[in-house]
Amino acid sequence: MEVIHNYHNFPENIATVVTIGTFDGVHVGHRKILDQLFKEAKAKGLKSVLLTFFPHPRMVVQSDNSIKLINTIDERIDILSKTDLDYLVIQPFDRDFSNLSAFDFVRDVLVTRLNVKELVVGYDHRFGKNREGDFEQLKEYSHTFDFKIKEIKAQDINNTAVSSTKVRNALNTGEIEIANQYLTTPFFINGIVVKGQQLGATIGYPTANIEISEVYKLTPKNGVYVILATHKEQNYYGMLNIGNRPTVNGKDKTIEAHIFDFDFNIYGEDIKIEFLYYLREEEKFYSIEALKEQLAVDKKNSLNYIQNLTQNKAS
């Protein structure tokens, strides 16, 4: 997969099948669109292109900095690089680009620069200034500019149409297994291990304090999770707490992972955390000893979950 920043830089004379969207999470609905994209490209001898946007359009058009994304742009690149996609075009989304009319977007971006021969879009796709363009307009423009168009219907799981918003809602309510079912792979974060107060080490549960640099990256609901940590391409199970550490009157939200069978100094190093299961809400305990007792229960429950998980994978 080749990554191209700005549609103006797309190479000339390459005929394409294109899909468009933010693709936050690259969930099962997105996967269905991509599968159709690859199928059409292979059948017609064309190159597959995903035109995506960064920052998220809502951050620009609505000046909404409250929106949190399932993936950072680098995470999205990494996920898509593992597919059969030929070109990922990341369009810087700014006011000028947002003011392109639906007609100008199709003519100038899709036809003139991306040389589209077929367009694959989701059932609810909107485009152009103020999201004025819809599927009916695309059908009109496909005749004007001589390209084909295919619409993908909603992908359902348990009778629920999947969307990035529904994935975010599941993460925000601690329904991590539902979110992972939608995403097809576990939700994850990438961060740097930084020094904390090191309280965990004094009570037998040392933690890696994880700092995420991208302020727009979503973190799940506060609480305790079973996780899979990846450090230098090695995997380790563990448990993780997101919250304000009320037992010690903490004020700032922290992400602290206790990694099982792990005894390395990794301050300043990168780590990836996959969220597997939501164990419990964050609590305030009346003493450090009571917290320690609960952590022992959490570890036991985590190990039971991991044992069942590994057995199911082996069967």
Rank of each mutant, 00 (worst) to 15 (best):
Y237W: 11
Y237I: 08
Y237E: 08
G238P: 07
M239F: 15
L240Y: 07
N241Q: 02
I242Y: 03
I242Q: 04
I242P: 11
N244A: 08
N244G: 00
R245E: 06
R245Y: 01
P246F: 09
N249K: 15
N249V: 08
N249L: 11
N249Q: 12
N249D: 09
G250W: 11
K251F: 01
D252K: 15
T254N: 09
I255P: 10
E256Q: 01
E256M: 10
E256I: 10
A257P: 03
A257T: 04
H258M: 06
H258S: 11
F260L: 11
D261G: 12
D261Q: 11
D263H: 14
N265Y: 05
I266D: 08
I266K: 08
Y267A: 13
Y267C: 05
Y267I: 04
G268S: 01
G268Y: 06
E269P: 04
E269T: 05
E269D: 07
D270P: 04
I271P: 06
K272C: 14
I273H: 06
F275W: 11
F275H: 02
F275P: 13
F275D: 02
L276D: 04
L276M: 09
L276N: 07
Y277Q: 11
Y278T: 00
Y278I: 01
L279E: 14
L279M: 11
R280M: 03
E281D: 07
E281K: 04
E281H: 06
E281M: 01
E282W: 06
E282S: 07
E283H: 15
K284A: 13
Y286K: 13
S287P: 07
S287D: 06
I288Q: 04
E289A: 13
A290V: 09
K292Q: 14
K292A: 11
E293G: 08
Q294W: 12
L295E: 12
L295C: 13
A296Q: 13
A296C: 00
V297W: 12
K299E: 10
K299F: 10
K300P: 05
S302I: 10
L303C: 11
N304G: 02
N304M: 15
N304F: 15
Y305R: 03
I306V: 07
Q307C: 06
N308K: 07
L309D: 00
L309V: 03
T310H: 09
T310D: 08
Q311R: 13
Q311K: 03
K313C: 01
K313D: 03
K313H: 00
